[in-house]
Design a protein around this nucleic acid. Structure first.
Lengths: 335, 335
DNA sequence: GCCCGTTGTCGAACCGGTTCGATTGCACCA
DNA sequence: TGGTGCAATCGAACCGGTTCGACAACGGGC
């Protein structure tokens, strides 16, 4: 058995409560007593029992992180969110309970109703996410990464996909392009309700229309060799287009190889712009002009807001919907 | 406040202990009483408080998962381990506490000494992993994914890299190749003590020597454009080599583009074999003959063994060192 | 009619902390 | 010199479960 606070108290010749107060600093303790206690603690190798503390304080100092691996999903981007949420949590003193249940809503219920966590972060939120209702019923606050159809009562953090699209269209328009191609996420993402697909597409089309540009929009694919087939078919069908906007992780990741095979040089023969994070670009060796998807910022903001609500229930104001503004990183792939 | 077992007891007109026994089934309860209790439970929406249960039973039903993102590491493979450990844990009734502290050893100490977990899985274990000593001091059992220099007291699961190398060399030898190139992980992986680097290389060299093959070994790089520069330099330096063995995630991921750029066809001009998982191959659209790195099996075995030790302390036998045998998946990239 | 074993339930102790109210001793002020 | 206030500490209650020992009721064997 491990040393308990009782053991420390005995070794230091004081009561349990005195040890507790010495630990928390919530009441004044004389210097000598505190030193005796500290000595006993290091002597015995005492550590507070997390379960007991959680029971007494109703605070677990743990956040739930709910990821979700959709079938056919292009997963690598997920890791960046897991990292950023985990890092931000740790900095604020929280641990992370990672949940990836097949039944995601049940996972939310399990960790919230049993009081295993003080708050929940949902990754990869879809338009009609089945986890949302369950999360709303929970006592603990929740923060979403990704905008659902109805976010009532929950804090939302997402990229401003509309603005992202406009920045890219503006960039291409400014460079003189007049006919564009947009490759969106795969169709099944739209069907599942990943709203970022149409938020980006609609804004791009609207903006292009305002400028009088022609823009052709297509669904992308999520796996080879379908990706290559699709891209080639699109390029064959639109020989007049001078620029490609790729809003599709799997497609942008293999694009260098596809274009290379076709003998297309970027930006000489075709301009390419996209949307991905620097880490993502490094992993796939991409050097396209892109708006940064900053998973780090997103995860960090979500955790910060969550912790604010935990410490300040009801006080932290009405639910927040925060969109990250685009930051264009010009890598010269559009001319 | 949530409903407690006391509320359930009151609603069902029984004592707390009776409710507890009805829940656990550790003592016989009459049918009518059990039904009254179950009714009360669903009526009140009662769920056992995890902290209280952990305190009473000294079991948290949570496993610690310690990942570690080394600087310059090629991370995508990590996600597969996280998934498999998490899935396997859930199937056995455990939750996963995900820890990614900058100071990894401190992370181990934190979650073990505070009794937040019943066991610990270490990912990406290096030769002289600083987490090991801390883990050995813990009350909880630990399972490693990756072979360290000294694994005393801990269960180890890893690929049989030596055998993996031999299978690939055998494959190439059988196809008539007489001069091979091996691209290993980056040098800093060897320095850090990732033993898989030399375990694979030494076995490949030994096997090639036995067959009288020439084999040239090189460190790979972990990032573009260094990867391309390195690969091109190697190919320039060894024009006589007919086959390439790539034991390096980052390199194999960009190899298609590099070879395409050089105008090298696989397997017509050069045979290529490697070591990666099917998922990894799908993400990077790779179609090389490779030995499967089965992160899924590895994660699952580690968790199973860990749970065995948790339920059966001291009884589960001496520490295990289990190596996964290679499975060659012939995708025709060697001729 | 008595003894015994079984079934079903209860009360109390315990797990390891936190926190509130009470108490003691001492310095300070009027 | 008595009252006041503060610093330092203690004891007890509580958080929400689990588990052990006790006990009543009951049926069966003799």
């Amino acid at each position: 058995g491990m040393a308990t606070i009782e053991d420390v108290a005995r070794a230091a010749g004081v009561s349990r409560s005195t040890v507790s107060y010495a630990l928390s600093g919530k009441r004044t303790i004389s210097r000598e007593t505190r030193e005796r206690i500290e000595h006993a603690i290091s002597e015995l190798g005492f550590t507070v029992n997390a379960g007991a503390r959680a029971l007494a304080t109703s605070q677990t100092m743990t956040l739930g992180l709910l990821s979700q691996f959709h079938q056919d999903e292009f997963a690598p981007a997920m890791l960046q969110y897991i990292r950023s949420v985990s890092d931000a949590s740790r900095e604020l003193g929280y641990d992370v309970l990672f949940v990836n249940d097949a039944n995601a809503a049940a996972g939310v219920r399990r960790i919230t109703s049993s009081n295993q966590v003080d708050g929940v972060v949902l990754l990869d939120v879809t338009h009609a996410d089945p986890r949302l209702d369950t999360l709303r019923e929970a006592r603990q606050p929740g923060a979403l990464i990704g905008l659902p159809g109805h976010s009532d009562g929950l804090d939302v953090f997402d990229l401003d996909f509309g603005e992202f699209a406009r920045v890219l269209v503006d960039h291409l328009y400014g460079l003189g392009h007049r006919e564009l191609i947009l490759i969106s996420p795969p169709e099944h993402v739209f069907e599942r309700g990943g709203s970022y697909g149409w938020r980006f597409r609609d804004a791009a089309v609207e903006r292009a229309g305002r400028y009088g540009l022609r823009i052709h929009t297509y669904y992308g694919e999520s796996q080879q060799p379908a990706i290559g087939v699709r891209v080639n078919a699109i390029l064959d069908a639109r020989p007049g287009a001078t620029a490609l906007i790729v809003h599709n992780d799997a497609t942008i990741a293999t694009l260098p190889l596809i274009l290379q095979t076709r003998g297309i040089r970027v930006p000489d023969d075709l301009s390419v712009v996209s949307l991905y994070s620097q880490d993502f670009g490094r992993i796939f060796s991409l050097a396209y002009t892109a708006v940064e998807s900053s998973p780090d910022t997103l995860g960090r903001l979500a955790v910060q807001q969550l912790v604010r609500r935990i410490n300040d229930p009801g006080q932290a104001g009405p639910p927040v919907v925060k969109f990250i503004a685009p930051e264009l990183i010009d890598r010269g792939s559009a001319a």
